[in-house]
């Protein structure tokens, strides 16, 4: 089950069902990459909800929390089943692509997506924003695609947990 989560299809391949595993891998990763291709990083946006959940459990009473109000934690809960690749994309989105905007009530920083137009650099050159936030139908379909990838991988994880190891093929004409 863990293998099936770490890499979609790896659970089936480990059990000897190579073709099934390849199909799951192609379908799940295909949907995930398709969603990212359509909507960009907007398709995977936890809004730091799960990051703060872990911080709340492990941190002390004076812990400050960064927030990202534009995020979609409910949709991300489905996307997280794609595996560590989804968590890595979300981490990159939250901490490398979003920018600190204003102070929030916990003393942390609210991180927001950059403004969608070029800004002037210190030497007068124009700097493009780190990314453009998707809106409308494209954003909807991108998020839907990534979450569907996670849900389909959840089906594959459950299926891998109930599958038995595939019997090895006998050599033709030989004994077992």
């Amino acid at each position: 089950m863990l293998l099936a989560w770490v890499c979609p299809g790896a659970g089936h391949i480990f059990l000897g069902h190579t073709k099934r595993g390849a199909g799951v891998c192609a379908g799940v990763l295909g949907l995930f990459v398709f969603g990212l291709f359509l909507a960009g990083p907007t398709a995977v946006d936890s809004g730091l909800f799960f990051h703060n959940l872990v911080k709340r459990w492990t941190g002390g009473p004076n812990t400050t929390f960064d927030t990202a109000p534009e995020g979609d934690p409910i949709w991300f809960a489905g996307t997280a089943f794609v595996g560590p690749i989804a968590l890595a994309v979300d981490y990159h989105h939250q901490f490398n692509l979003k920018q600190p905007a204003e102070r929030n009530t916990s003393g942390g920083v609210a991180r927001r997506s950059p403004r969608p137009f070029p800004s002037a650099g210190p030497d007068g050159s124009t700097i493009a924003p780190a990314y453009s936030r998707a809106l409308g139908r494209v954003a909807e379909i991108g998020v839907l695609s990534c979450t569907l990838a996670g849900m389909l991988n959840l089906i594959a994880i459950i299926d891998a947990a109930h599958h038995h190891r595939a019997p090895r093929r006998r050599r033709e004409g030989g004994s077992a």
């Binding site: 099934r20 199909g23 192609a26 379908g27 295909g30 359509l38 695609s145």
Partner: peptide, 16 residues
Amino acid sequence: LLVPLALFIAIAYKAV
């Protein structure tokens, strides 16, 4: 976009 979406869903679902 429905066409590739449906294709990828079918690839993953039918593999299982």
